[in-house]
Every structure is written in structure tokens, then in C-alpha cells.
């Protein structure tokens, strides 16, 4: 398919050679800057490198609240999950990885998930479950290191999903702010 982007190039650009050198000067500029900036870090003198890539497993980033890690269930102050097993996340999940067995509880919320499992091998971290949840009970945490060699271990049961509210406060505030804008 030919896409005509209507780009008109000047005569200077059409020679191509000068533009190549311009490109090369940009990249080699980075090259030398980093080559020199690399040295203090190599000698362990200076923690602040010019290169901002991290040495991943040794150094970790703190993710911004917008980061979508593995979905988890919020545990409220009273020690129970907020989820009422309404099943909306189960139906909205495009990867069909959530499975919930609802049941009745004596608590005021009447309904609770007797079992709640997410197949993390299938989850695509889309965050739909979080968006659809009427109780802000399932949120995307900032945990992303969930790889495993055994598929069976990727079935996260309810107790693996429960995370206390305090730890998720940042994300909870964030989703309130962004989903509050929609006003369905």
C-alpha cells in the first residue's frame, strides 16, 4: 500500500547526504556523551549516571500510580475484601481469566466472593476489571514480577490477591480521579 504523506522535501534534504550526516551527528553526540558519562559509574564513583536506564534486578523503579501491574483485591479496614462478587469484572475481562464463586455472607454487604481466582498467565493487564468494578474492589497494583515456570502457580487464589487498602492508597486515589471524570 502506498501512503502519500504529502511530505515535500527541500532541495537540501533531497541530496540526502547532508541529512545523513546530521543524523549521524545526533547519534554520535549521544554516543560520546554517554561514553564519557559512563566512566564515573563504571568506577562506582557516582551513582548518578548520565544513562537513565536502570540495572533492572539490582535497581528498581518506583512506578507512577498510573502503572498497571497485576490486579489485586482491596482489603478494607475491617479486614475483609471489598468485593461483593458482582461478576462484572468476570464478564468484562477480555482474557476471560477471572473466576468468581459468589456466596452469601452475614456481613452487611450480603454477598461476597467465596472463591476468586485470576489466571495471571492469561491476564493482559488491561485494567478493565478495575474500571468496571462498582466497589473499587479490584485495582491494578504496581507488582509486575509474576513470571513463573509452572502454569499451575499462575492461578492466583483469593488469599494471594488480597492486599490491604493502605498499600494501594495511591492507586485508589488515582482511579477515583480518572474514572471520576467519565460520569457514566
Amino acid at each position: 500500500m502506498i501512503v502519500n504523506r504529502n511530505i515535500t522535501m527541500t532541495w537540501w534534504e533531497r541530496i540526502y547526504l547532508p541529512e545523513i550526516f546530521r543524523g549521524i551527528s545526533v547519534t554520535s553526540n549521544h554516543f560520546f556523551r554517554n561514553l564519557i558519562g559512563f566512566i564515573p559509574a563504571l568506577l562506582n564513583k557516582d551513582k548518578k549516571r548520565k544513562i537513565f536506564t536502570l540495572y533492572y534486578p539490582d535497581e528498581k523503579v518506583e512506578f507512577p500510580p498510573a502503572y498497571r501491574g497485576r490486579p489485586v483485591l482491596v482489603v478494607d479496614e475491617n479486614g475483609t475484601e471489598r468485593c461483593v462478587a458482582c461478576g462484572l469484572c468476570e464478564i468484562v475481562c477480555p482474557a476471560k481469566c477471572i473466576e468468581i464463586q459468589p456466596d452469601e455472607t452475614e456481613l452487611e454487604k450480603e454477598r461476597y466472593p467465596k472463591s476468586f481466582s485470576i489466571n495471571m498467565a492469561r491476564c493482559i493487564f488491561c485494567g478493565f476489571c478495575e474500571e468496571v468494578c462498582p466497589k473499587e474492589a479490584i485495582v491494578m497494583s504496581d507488582e509486575c514480577e509474576i513470571a513463573d515456570l509452572d502454569r499451575n502457580k499462575m492461578f492466583y487464589k483469593k488469599d494471594q490477591l488480597l492486599i490491604s487498602k493502605n498499600k494501594l492508597q495511591k492507586r485508589l486515589n488515582y482511579i477515583k480521579e480518572i474514572y471520576g471524570k467519565w460520569n457514566y
Binding site: A85, C86, G87, E90, I91, P102, D103, E104, R111
Partner: peptide, 9 residues
């Protein structure tokens, strides 16, 4: 039938 399953499933 209460709380057994969601009708949309």
C-alpha cells in the same frame, strides 16, 4: 438461586 451465579453467565 440467590448468589449462586450471575444471570448473564
Amino acid at each position: 438461586f440467590r448468589f449462586q451465579v450471575r444471570v448473564w453467565f
